[in-house]
Design a protein around this nucleic acid. Structure first.
Lengths: 227, 227
DNA sequence: CGAATGATTGAGCGCTTTCAAGGCTAGTGG
DNA sequence: CCACTAGCCTTGAAAGCGCTCAATCATTCG
């Protein structure tokens, strides 16, 4: 199943290199990088840790819109927009590369490859978003959480951050809940159920997929959208 | 509230003109334009009627990912992709303009304005998608349907297809249900509730917003994402 | 060690679904 | 012009999934 997914991500490598030649900054878990509606003068590239974009309703409810892993550009899909339509924040201790908008634009127009990568990155984000529309609209809590595990595992495997059937998984149940549009309490019960069924276990911020085939099946997971 | 939204859509006009100089084709309601996974050799522009993109799970469940109104390009966000990640189909009797991929690419690289419009259209689609993530993840059935009504009203108002507090609304309750990730039965009860509260009524494929302010409030609707 | 944060458990409620039936309306053909 | 049909809308009852509230246990970190 995983054979369909390429094993290197030149995008990640290139962006990473580019970012390292500019400002880097460290955030602690939960810290806001950029609030909703703010103009963003820079683009951000994840060097270490995980980041997230979420939107908030006036009454306090909030929903995660995207999860960014190392090597990814945050809000690639809003490059060219004046304002962010969600708040960027750190899911874990996080190191970000920041590149000024203008400088990045110049780089883009200079190197065709970079422009292509940006477009590819935007399409990937968009594909993930569509997949999550399907998750939130149609999948049960069990399916959603199983799907999240599959997705984050495969995404990390693609960029070489997984080994065997394990990968980093530094999310609290509270954070998983917000990504999946569930409550923390119910998320807890579902994670227990996945463990009880010998599908997957989270220990020490590591995800272990005990039976990936079965997990994919219960999640109705189809990795083709991850390219 | 609507004052923040511009009143003309030069994008729609331009695309429309372009499309009219090429092939047009008519579909009947429910007809598939392009199935998931197919390579799409053309791009499509809605001339008349409404279209939709949806994805399907192996067990039959399906979720609408986008609704396309007259003047819009279907799957702008997947321009440049090889394969569609959802099925395009007609929500109503539908007239589409079709332009070959290569020809459109040529046009894009010739006219900077067109490229800019394409990018803007992609960003709009993406913003709508993010908003629907919030709807499906956090909003109640009542809020979702109220939000859909507000969104489709404003989108049509922007492109001049609404007058006063009414606009075309040719969806069946079944279709509304699929967009909102609800069952048809519950959708029916919610629409009755909106009617009972004197917020909005659907009659003869027309939506009448009796109290837009109150409807926006119950939907927690914020039109800023529509530009 | 203490404090704070995260994970777990229980009970009860409510929104949404499911299943199943009946009514309405528009379009069709006689 | 009417009868017929098919699709759409409406209604009721019951079950279930996920939420809320509230408390307790576990773990991490200073």
């Amino acid at each position: 199943m995983l054979a369909t997914v390429g094993h290197t991500s030149c995008q990640a490598a290139t962006l990473r290199e580019l970012a390292l030649r500019h400002t880097t900054r460290t955030y602690h878990r939960g810290e806001t990088i950029r609030a909703e509606g703010q103009r963003s003068e820079s683009i951000y590239i994840v060097l270490d840790g995980w980041a997230e974009q979420h939107a908030q309703l006036r009454d306090g409810r909030s929903q995660v819109l995207a999860v960014y892993l190392p090597g990814q550009m945050c809000s690639a899909d809003s490059f060219g927009e004046e304002r962010l339509d969600g708040t960027l924040s750190a899911l874990t201790r996080l190191r970000l590369g920041e590149i000024e908008r203008d400088r990045f634009s110049a780089y883009i127009s200079l190197y065709h490859d970079a422009a292509f990568e940006l477009a590819a990155s935007q399409r990937l984000q968009s594909a993930i978003q569509r997949r999550w529309l399907m998750c939130l609209g149609q999948r049960s809590a069990l399916e959603r959480i199983a799907h999240l595990m599959c997705e984050l595992f495969v995404r990390q495997r693609v960029s070489g951050q997984a080994r065997e059937w394990s990968c980093p998984f530094p999310l609290t149940q509270q954070q998983i809940a917000k990504i999946c549009g569930l409550t923390q309490v119910h998320t807890n019960r579902v994670i227990q159920e996945l463990r009880r069924r010998d599908l997957a276990v989270i220990t020490r911020k590591q995800l272990r997929l005990i039976d990936f085939e079965a997990l994919s099946a219960t999640a109705l997971f189809d990795p083709s959208y991850l390219q």
